[in-house]
Nucleic acid binder design. Structure first.
Length: 458
DNA sequence: GGAACTCGCCAC
DNA sequence: AAACGTGGCGAGTTCC
C-alpha cells in the first residue's frame, strides 16, 4: 500500500464499510418491547403528575388567562411570550433569530421556581418521545435496524437514522438508565462495547506531529491536570488533593476540548465561571463553588490577584497564548499552514484519501481532517472485525457503531477471540495499512454481562 | 394536509 | 481576522 492514500482508497473504504454496516443493520439490535411499554406508561404518569404541579403555579394561571384553550406548556413560543413580554424579564440570551431563548440554561438563569417543574417535564418528554416511543415505532419483531449512512456528513463521518442510534443518553444517569435498559442482547449473549480512547486527539497527532503532545499521548504527563494547574494557579495538583478530579474535569471540558474545536479564551472564561458559579463582575470572599476542602473558589483566586471576571478573562487570555505559542507551538504551526494550504488549493485531503472542497471557515478546515480520519480508523476496525466474524462463522454479531466505538451482541465463549482480534487490528493492521498513524491506538472493551441490558454498569 | 422552518437537546 | 466541529429528531409553528 502506498504511503499516501488516494481517493480510490477512500472509495474502497466506503464500499467495504457499506457492506459491513449493512450486515449490522440486517442483524439488528434486540429491544425489550415489554419494558418499553411499561416504562412509557410509567413516564406518562410522572409527566401527568408534574403537569398538575405546574398547573398550581402562578405562572401557569397567568399563562392560561392569556392563551386560553390554546395553552400548551410544550410551546416555547408561548413560554417566551410569558417570560419576556408579560413578565418583562430580560432574556439572558437569544436564539439564532434574535428571540429570547428558552433553553435550559436561559431558564435557569431566570431563577423562577416554576422553571424546575417545566424542565423536569421537558426531560421526561425527551426520554419518552425521542427514545422509547421511537424504539417501539421503529422495531421489527423485537429488533431495531438503525441505518448507517456514509455519504451524508461533510467530514466523511457516518450518520445514523430510524432510529438514530448515535445519540442515546449516556451522561445523564437517569436518562441513560431508562433508555439503555431497553437495549438487550440475544438470549445467552452479552452486549460488548469497544471504544477507542482519545481517538480524535490521537489522530490530530498524525497531522501536526507536535512533540509535547506526543509526550502526553504516550503517557508522560497529564495534559488536563497540567492545564488545571495553570488555569486555577496551583503550585501542585496531584491525586491526593481533594479537588483533583473536579478541577481536572473543568480544565478538560471548559478549556482543552473547546480549544481543540477552535473556541477562544473569552468563551472559556465564561464557561469556567458558570461552572464555578462565579458572577460576572467583582468577586466577593466566599463566592463560587465550595471545594472539597471547604474553601470557596473565589478565595483561592482572589489570593492570586484575580478578583473579578475581567481579570480572570485576561488570565485565560495568557493561558490560551501559552497553550498555543509555547506548549503546543508545533500543533499551532500545523493549523496555520494547513489553513494556508487549503486557501491556496481550494480543497483539503485527509490522510485517508478523502477530499473536502467548497467554502470552509478556519475551524472547519482544521477540524474536518481530524474528525474524518478518526472515524475512518473506527470504520476500518469495524470492517476487519466483520471479516473475522464472517470467516470464523461466529455466532457473535456486530450490531452498531457510534463514531469511535463498536457495539456487539456476543457469544461469551467467543469473547476471548474477539478481544484478541480487536487488539491485533488496532495495533497491527491499522498502522500497517496506514503508516501515517504515528501514535499507538488503544481500544477499551466493556462487557455488559450475559442477558444484561445496555444500562448495566460495567 | 404536507413541506419547511425554528428551537431545543441527545450523542461523539 | 475570528471566535465550538459533526449529526438526527420531536414538537411547535408557518407557509403554500
Amino acid at each position: 500500500m502506498k504511503i499516501k492514500a488516494t481517493q480510490a482508497d477512500a472509495y474502497r473504504l466506503v464500499h467495504d464499510g457499506v457492506l459491513a454496516l449493512a450486515r449490522a443493520e440486517r442483524a439488528g439490535i434486540r429491544l425489550d418491547t415489554g419494558y418499553c411499554d411499561r416504562k412509557i406508561r410509567h413516564l406518562s404518569r410522572r409527566i401527568n403528575h408534574q403537569h398538575k404541579q405546574l398547573q398550581e403555579t402562578k405562572l401557569y394561571k397567568q399563562w392560561e388567562r392569556i392563551f386560553r384553550d390554546k395553552t400548551n406548556i410544550h410551546s416555547n413560543n408561548q413560554l417566551a411570550h410569558m417570560l419576556y413580554k408579560v413578565l418583562k424579564l430580560e432574556p439572558t440570551k437569544t436564539t439564532d433569530t434574535g428571540q429570547g431563548s428558552t433553553d435550559e440554561d436561559a431558564l435557569r438563569r431566570l431563577g423562577l421556581p416554576e422553571v424546575d417543574i417545566l424542565l423536569a417535564i421537558r426531560k421526561l418528554c425527551k426520554i419518552k418521545s425521542t427514545y422509547l416511543t421511537a424504539f417501539l415505532r421503529e422495531h421489527t419483531a423485537g429488533y431495531l435496524h438503525p441505518v448507517y449512512h456514509l455519504h451524508t456528513v461533510k467530514t466523511y463521518r457516518s450518520s445514523s437514522a430510524e432510529p438514530n442510534f448515535q445519540n442515546i443518553p449516556k451522561r445523564d444517569r437517569d436518562a441513560m438508565q431508562i433508555c439503555r435498559r431497553a437495549i438487550i442482547p440475544r438470549a445467552g449473549n452479552t452486549l460488548v462495547e469497544a471504544d477507542f480512547s482519545a481517538l480524535e486527539v490521537n489522530i490530530s497527532q498524525c497531522y501536526h506531529h507536535d512533540p509535547k503532545m506526543l509526550e502526553y499521548l504516550t503517557g508522560a504527563g497529564d495534559m488536563h491536570a497540567d492545564m488545571a494547574k495553570q488555569i486555577f494557579i496551583l503550585d501542585e495538583l496531584d491525586k491526593t488533593i481533594p479537588a483533583y478530579n473536579t478541577l481536572r474535569q473543568a480544565a478538560k471540558n471548559g478549556f482543552v476540548f473547546p480549544q481543540f474545536y477552535g473556541d477562544y479564551y473569552l468563551n472559556n472564561a465564561h464557561s469556567l465561571c458558570d461552572w464555578a458559579k462565579l458572577p460576572a463582575g467583582t468577586w466577593k470572599a466566599g463566592a463560587g463553588i465550595e471545594m472539597p476542602d471547604g474553601k470557596h473558589i473565589s478565595d483561592h483566586l482572589r489570593n492570586q490577584g484575580i478578583k473579578s471576571f475581567d481579570r480572570f478573562a485576561e488570565h485565560m487570555n495568557t493561558v490560551e497564548n501559552d497553550f498555543w505559542n509555547n506548549r503546543f507551538a508545533v500543533y499551532n504551526n500545523w493549523r496555520r499552514s494547513w489553513v494556508e494550504q487549503y486557501r491556496r488549493r481550494g480543497y483539503l485531503r485527509m490522510h485517508t484519501g478523502f477530499v473536502c472542497s467548497g467554502i470552509m471557515r478556519r475551524n472547519e478546515i482544521i477540524n474536518y481532517p481530524i474528525q474524518g480520519s478518526a472515524f475512518h480508523c473506527l470504520l476500518l476496525t469495524f470492517i476487519e472485525l466483520d471479516n473475522y466474524i464472517q470467516r470464523k462463522n461466529l455466532r457473535s454479531k456486530l450490531i452498531g457503531q457510534i463514531h469511535d466505538s463498536i457495539l456487539l451482541d456476543a457469544d461469551p465463549d467467543e469473547l476471548p477471540g474477539i478481544k484478541q482480534r480487536l487488539r491485533t487490528i488496532v495495533t497491527k493492521t491499522l498502522p500497517k495499512r496506514w503508516p501515517w498513524i504515528v501514535v499507538p491506538l488503544e481500544i477499551d472493551v466493556d462487557v455488559y454481562g450475559v442477558d444484561q441490558s445496555w444500562a448495566t454498569p460495567t
